[in-house]
């Protein structure tokens, strides 16, 4: 199989992720779209690394993973805070994510 197909796949995944970000309303789903974009990037990096016979791309993929993890920490914290606020604002004392 032609290896450049993986680059095409990465582009398709990236486009799906970007569409998700732009069209969906739920913050968690939007965030999943961003994650999909980052993972599409990883696929592109490792594919290019394979094409070039070069390790740099694989190392860069690790960098992206670490950054994505850091982003999850901050992003989910913000989204969960908002969720808790809105829940407790609308429904008395019901707070599913509490604790």
């Amino acid at each position: 199989m032609e290896i450049t197909n993986y680059v095409v796949l990465a582009c398709i995944l990236f486009a799906i992720g970007a569409t998700t970000v732009l069209l969906r309303r739920n913050a968690i789903v939007v965030f999943m779209g961003v994650e999909l974009m980052l993972n599409a990037t990883n696929l592109a990096f490792v594919t290019f690394a394979r094409i070039h016979g070069d390790l740099t791309g694989q190392v860069l993929a690790f960098f992206v993973m670490v950054v994505a993890a850091a982003e999850v920490v901050v992003g989910l914290a913000i989204i969960v805070t908002i969720f808790r606020t809105r829940r407790s604002a609308s429904v008395d004392d019901v707070n599913l994510l509490h604790g």
Partner: peptide
């Protein structure tokens, strides 16, 4: 709400940025 908006759009922007980097890496090789 400001934080959430900033975060979601900022994360989107940085995802665009890093995909651009991936393409430049492909070209660079």
């Amino acid at each position: 709400e400001a934080a959430a908006k900033y975060f979601l759009l900022g994360a989107f922007a940085s995802a665009l940025f890093i995909f651009g980097v991936a393409l430049i890496y492909g070209f660079g090789g």
